Simulated scan of single mutants.
Amino acid sequence: MLSGKVVVVTGASGGVGRAVVRMLGVKGAKVALIARGETGLATAATEVGVEGGTAKVFPADMADHEQVDAAADAIERELGPIDVWINVAFSSVFAPFLEVEPAEFERTTAVTYLGYVWGTRAALKRMRERDQGVIVQTGSALAYRGIPLQAAYCGSKHAMKGFTESVRTELLHQGSGIKITMVQLPAVNTPQFDWVLSRLGRHPQPVPPIFQPEVAAQAIVYAAEHPARREYWVGGSTAATIIGQKFIPGLIDRYLGKTGVGSQQTDEKPPTGVGNLWEPADEDRDYGAHGSFDTKSKDRSVQVWLSQNRNKVAAGAGAAAAALLALRAARR
């Protein structure tokens, strides 16, 4: 379905983006890789080729709309018209709100929120001429529920959700053939926790349940191929977050106030001292897709499987219902 298609992936050099581009290589796509870290990008491009796809690197800072637009021009010039644009890039700061400097908060917002805005704008400008294309926004359960120590990131993900919903309704009003969808992720075992700017006394860690980046990539690539749904979820935490936020927000606030700080830190390894907020961490070193929590991470998700097998589940449920009715009729 994506074979031969031009697919742009931002944040492609590491973590979830890295897992996505490898999977796109398996699909035979022509993959445009955008990120800042050129060592990570080069290795990721090689992996796409090994998997059977075609890859080209387009270094850019997603916080700079001029760089993003120039990258989009170069992609269409060198690879062809963009069919799919997948926004993954982000940055963050792990610290209590008042310990985050204003410039750091602005930078996190510029990458994690405005980076999606500039990516979406660059994609829509070009897709509009052809009235076709797909945009996939990689979101988070934190788009629904903020947690301590990540105010800038949580705010950006909330903003991304509202922005995407607004753009979707505009496209529907216009009768556009362009589709835009979101994939809301749970905690994922990526290098984020090794290279994020942190002012915590201990090494940051994802809040369990933790999933491997390949699980997230599977859902993102599936959403690119099946964009009719407005939103996909990965892992049970997103659903639990939405339900909790709707019905018991005060209780959730108190629970996170008590447990949320400690659950995002570990003594299993010392802090790395690395921070990629202003400069890429993978400029001279390749971090790959996985972080430091392989032993704690799940390599499959029931929700992803259900999303990909809805027809089978529905058919199975229908067959079971028919069998039950037949059994009841036979007993009469």
Rank of each mutant, 00 (worst) to 15 (best):
residue 2 L to W: 05
residue 3 S to D: 12
residue 4 G to S: 05
residue 10 T to H: 05
residue 18 R to Y: 14
residue 18 R to A: 15
residue 21 V to D: 11
residue 24 L to H: 03
residue 25 G to S: 09
residue 34 I to M: 06
residue 34 I to W: 00
residue 37 G to E: 04
residue 38 E to A: 02
residue 43 T to S: 10
residue 43 T to W: 05
residue 44 A to N: 08
residue 46 T to N: 11
residue 46 T to K: 15
residue 48 V to G: 10
residue 50 V to Y: 06
residue 50 V to W: 07
residue 53 G to Q: 10
residue 57 V to R: 08
residue 57 V to W: 11
residue 61 D to F: 02
residue 68 V to W: 01
residue 72 A to P: 07
residue 76 E to G: 03
residue 76 E to T: 06
residue 76 E to L: 04
residue 77 R to E: 15
residue 78 E to G: 01
residue 82 I to W: 01
residue 82 I to P: 06
residue 86 I to V: 15
residue 93 V to A: 08
residue 93 V to M: 02
residue 100 V to I: 15
residue 109 T to Y: 14
residue 123 A to M: 05
residue 130 R to E: 04
residue 131 D to G: 01
residue 133 G to K: 02
residue 134 V to K: 02
residue 143 A to C: 08
residue 143 A to D: 04
residue 146 G to S: 14
residue 149 L to V: 09
residue 151 A to L: 04
residue 152 A to F: 00
residue 152 A to Y: 00
residue 155 G to M: 02
residue 162 G to H: 13
residue 165 E to T: 05
residue 169 T to C: 08
residue 181 T to N: 08
residue 185 L to I: 03
residue 186 P to Y: 00
residue 191 P to S: 10
residue 192 Q to D: 11
residue 194 D to N: 11
residue 196 V to F: 01
residue 209 P to C: 02
residue 211 F to Y: 15
residue 212 Q to I: 01
residue 214 E to R: 09
residue 218 Q to A: 13
residue 221 V to N: 07
residue 223 A to D: 11
residue 228 A to F: 07
residue 228 A to K: 10
residue 230 R to T: 14
residue 230 R to V: 13
residue 231 E to P: 09
residue 233 W to F: 15
residue 234 V to A: 02
residue 234 V to P: 02
residue 237 S to W: 05
residue 239 A to N: 04
residue 240 A to S: 13
residue 244 G to H: 13
residue 244 G to D: 14
residue 247 F to H: 12
residue 252 I to M: 15
residue 252 I to K: 09
residue 260 G to C: 03
residue 261 V to T: 12
residue 265 Q to E: 10
residue 266 T to G: 12
residue 268 E to I: 10
residue 271 P to F: 03
residue 272 T to H: 02
residue 275 G to V: 02
residue 277 L to S: 08
residue 284 D to E: 07
residue 286 D to P: 11
residue 290 H to S: 11
residue 291 G to E: 03
residue 291 G to P: 00
residue 294 D to V: 09
residue 296 K to W: 12
residue 302 V to I: 10
residue 302 V to N: 04
residue 304 V to D: 09
residue 305 W to P: 09
residue 307 S to R: 00
residue 315 A to R: 14
residue 318 G to C: 00
residue 320 A to P: 12
residue 320 A to H: 03
residue 323 A to H: 06
residue 324 L to Y: 12
residue 324 L to H: 10
residue 326 A to G: 14
residue 329 A to S: 13
residue 330 A to M: 05
